[in-house]
Design a protein around this nucleic acid. Sequence first.
DNA 1: GGTTGCTATGCAACGAGTTGCATAGGAGGA
DNA 2: TCCTCCTATGCAACTCGTTGCATAGCAACC
Lengths: 181, 181
Amino acid sequence: MALEHAILVSLLEQPGSGYELARRFERSIGRFWTATHQQIYRVLKRMEADGWVVSEEIGQDGRPDKRAYSVAATGQAELITWLRAPVQPEAVRHELAVKIRGAAFDDAEGRAALVDEVRRYRAEHEATLHRYLTGEKRDFPAGAELDAGQRLQHVVLRGGIAYERMLLDWLDDVLTTLREL
Amino acid sequence: MALEHAILVSLLEQPGSGYELARRFERSIGRFWTATHQQIYRVLKRMEADGWVVSEEIGQDGRPDKRAYSVAATGQAELITWLRAPVQPEAVRHELAVKIRGAAFDDAEGRAALVDEVRRYRAEHEATLHRYLTGEKRDFPAGAELDAGQRLQHVVLRGGIAYERMLLDWLDDVLTTLREL
DNA sequence: GGTTGCTATGCAACGAGTTGCATAGGAGGA
DNA sequence: TCCTCCTATGCAACTCGTTGCATAGCAACC
């Protein structure tokens, strides 16, 4: 039950509609918490029923109307309670690692297919790292004055960058290992 | 629908009962795929109904009977099909990152609580890294002759080690950032 | 004029995962 | 003797997350 809290953080950083939230979850927030628009709309309704957020219908011209959400006092209090609670152990789900160990039970053809797949996966993550680095240059230029919120966003982004770099190095290790099999 | 495949890999590496699988998922396999015993028992039943695995009741003395599972030909064929399919993009869920960004909306007391929590989290992962390194020394001593399966297990373990090291470095970065706020 | 794509919201059905509880025999310690 | 822990399996209820589909207006392109 933490999607609620990710939404609260995002709405506190910047109020917005379900649609806008869904796009943020494809980008910035999505780096550490994923959600589809269906999930977001459903949870927003529940959060409004619980008094965590309030919404306002906003008419737009040239576009469909939207419902803009912002965080209510109850929601902020709930967020603070949650922030101070211990971090739950996370559920790891690393499909590629399963496939690598599974490769022991496939033949040379299957292992060749896995090499191709690891290469494709690596290229994707190389692109991700590139996007992170571009975003970092844009949003956190060296020497800029940053407020607390921005510095926290930056350290989370640095975590994403460190993860991607570690992953790329490991994927090289995997490719070498598969080739030497 | 990938728990099935993680179970197939685990049973191919070593046949065993639901209980034994659950313990492996707490240790080795659990590094990259988590599952509870309830999930495992349920899925094993479905897999047997689908003919992916076969089981045999084994009477034990001094202990309850157990049902030992092993992979059937259909299951191995299914695994190979899955191995050769593209890796699905994984659902990221990093609660700590949400809390760090959320800290912008808490006060000094809340941020102090977060520092404590990050320290605790860091200590946990330091212990995890230690376990991995101990396991590596035990299972993959330098200079040993390893077969394909073992080399693949080793490269996955190296991934876990690289992840934990990256995480510890990043957590230090987080602590410094929080302190300088 | 028709197709495609974007903004914007939503329902319904299903599958995956979690939580709480239940059973049951044996081992080991206070 | 009672309590706790470990092995071993399982049901039921619930929540979370995914997938497919639907609607609807406007913009841009061919």
